[in-house]
């Protein structure tokens, strides 16, 4: 199965990565190559096989529901490209 320009545009949008119109054809080509490689999996009989969810069969540990960390506003904001008054600042999202 090959990826056309419209699909490439859609996937770029879903991925929130800006791709210029002129670059979509090349992108579609490369994605098609990767997808073609994945197509081999269609040869495998997977009837009755459960999808693998965990590398090692294990039950996730539970921890006591208490505060173990926190109150580190300055550290959390330190690497932000734009932080103001104790918040992450972003372009306006609601009118």
């Amino acid at each position: 199965m090959s990826i056309d320009i419209d699909t490439a545009r859609k996937v770029a949008k879903l991925s929130r990565i800006r791709v210029e119109e002129g670059d979509l054809l090349a992108l579609a080509d490369k994605l098609s190559s990767i997808l073609g490689f994945m197509e081999q999996l269609k040869e495998v009989d997977v009837t009755g096989v459960e999808p693998m969810t965990s590398v090692t069969p294990m039950r996730l540990k539970r921890r006591v529901d208490v505060v173990t960390d926190g109150d580190q506003q300055a550290a959390v904001l330190k690497n932000a490209p734009d932080a103001r008054e104790g918040f992450f600042a972003v372009p306006k999202v609601v009118e």
């Binding site: 996937v11 879903l14 991925s15 997808l35 994945m38 999996l41 269609k42 495998v44 096989v49 693998m52």
Partner: peptide
């Protein structure tokens, strides 16, 4: 990222991602 987004997107999740997880089990 885009290849991953594609295999997880509606309509392809079973054909690619779930199938791969089954082959992984094998």
């Amino acid at each position: 990222i885009m290849a991953g987004t594609y295999v997880l997107s509606a309509g392809f999740y079973d054909a690619y991602y779930n199938r791969a997880r089954k082959v992984r089990a094998l």
